[in-house]
Simulated scan of single mutants.
Amino acid sequence: MNILVLTFGGPHTASTRYRILQYQEVLAAAGISCDFVPAKGFRDFAALSRYDAVLLQKTLLSCRVVRKLRLGTKRLLYDADDLAWLSPGKRHGLFTRIRVEWRLKRIAAAADLCMAANAVIAADLAARGATVTLLPMALDGRVWQDPVKDAGLVVGWSGAPHNLVFLRQILPQLREVQRRFPEVQWLVHCGVDPGFTDFNYSHEPFQPGREHEVVRRFHVGLLPLPDDPFVRGKSPIKALQYFASRVAVAGSPVGATGEIIRDEENALCVNGGDQWVTALERLLTDAALRQRLAAAGRRSFEERNDLPQVAGSLILALRGPVQPDSGNGPATR
């Protein structure tokens, strides 16, 4: 089976790497070969006949291009790991909203199947008439392992530069925790140094493919999120990285993240303000709590988000057809 994948970004773009590129070996073993071409600017419609299916990753192509994809391919799939049709932090202008909504509805109508990384995205696509199946985010548990951690406690945050604003919002609470626990190390893993003042921390620069080497040094992982429409649909890959690495999580149970982190079961859920101080104080003073949450997080990861399990669902979706149901699988049009 030959698949044309119209990608959202390059090999170091998180959504492209985690949604499709990391599955190449498994797909090849199942007899599925993939060609990867950037979605933006794709115009080689004559080549579509060489493929058994086209997978459009996240990009909202024009209605004209989507129509040509639909006419030229046997099977058209769309994959989304966030609400790409919303603008982070603010609403689109009126005309942009109209254009984006028109494109999204056209994709929903044209695709044989839309793959959504979480229930928030699935509901949004289904509301526009799409046939949807849940395909959770995944990591390779063989890579994201849980080695013995150093004795000195490390509280860490890992994320992209544009998400540093989430960490900045809780900086006053982090300063208070640091005042109470001056011996604790704080580590920020990011493509840029945030330049925090009046807060002692170490910065670990992002290097593609080495995230697991940094995250597994954490004892406690921070996952602060604001509650807004775009963030509710974000797929919490960082939560999975923490879970897979047996890192105890303190996080905001917002939207899709709330599907994964469960208060007192596999994480401490924090709704803002001084709750961050309380949660971190508990995690830093109670080793048994840290270990219990870390072990539960790893179990949660293995049950739902380990790559071999999700790969099986991806293979079924690519081969199709998928029959909708009303449970945790595909949603109906």
Rank of each mutant, 00 (worst) to 15 (best):
C63V: 11
K234A: 04
T278W: 06
T96N: 08
H162I: 07
V148Y: 01
A256K: 05
G320C: 05
G159M: 09
S245V: 08
A116Y: 02
S252C: 14
R216D: 01
K58N: 01
V214R: 00
A331S: 05
L307Q: 08
P182I: 02
E281P: 07
R298P: 02
E302R: 03
P253N: 02
L171E: 04
I3H: 00
A138T: 15
R282Y: 14
G31R: 06
R64I: 09
R246S: 15
V165R: 12
G273Y: 04
P330D: 00
E213H: 02
E265D: 15
K90E: 01
K74Y: 00
I32D: 00
L167Y: 13
A250W: 09
N163V: 02
R70K: 08
D112Y: 01
Q173H: 14
L104D: 04
I32L: 10
R319G: 13
E265M: 12
G31Q: 03
E213K: 06
Y201M: 07
V26C: 07
G327M: 03
V215F: 10
K105S: 00
A122L: 02
L86R: 07
A267C: 08
P224D: 14
L94W: 03
A123S: 01
E302V: 10
L293P: 05
F243G: 10
V254H: 14
L284R: 13
G195Y: 05
A279Q: 13
E281M: 15
Q169G: 15
D124T: 04
V132F: 00
R175F: 10
R299F: 08
T278S: 15
G41M: 09
A53R: 00
R168C: 13
C269M: 12
R290E: 09
L135M: 14
Q22A: 05
R67C: 05
A295W: 11
D306W: 05
R67K: 15
E259K: 08
L55P: 02
R179L: 03
D82I: 10
Y201Q: 12
I32P: 05
G89Q: 01
L280P: 15
E25V: 15
L223G: 03
W102M: 15
L48F: 04
R99N: 09
T7V: 06
R290H: 08
H12Y: 11
D82W: 07
P253G: 02
D52K: 12
S252W: 06
P226I: 05
R299C: 05
G152I: 12
V165P: 07
A151Q: 15
R106S: 11
R232G: 12
R210F: 03
A119R: 10
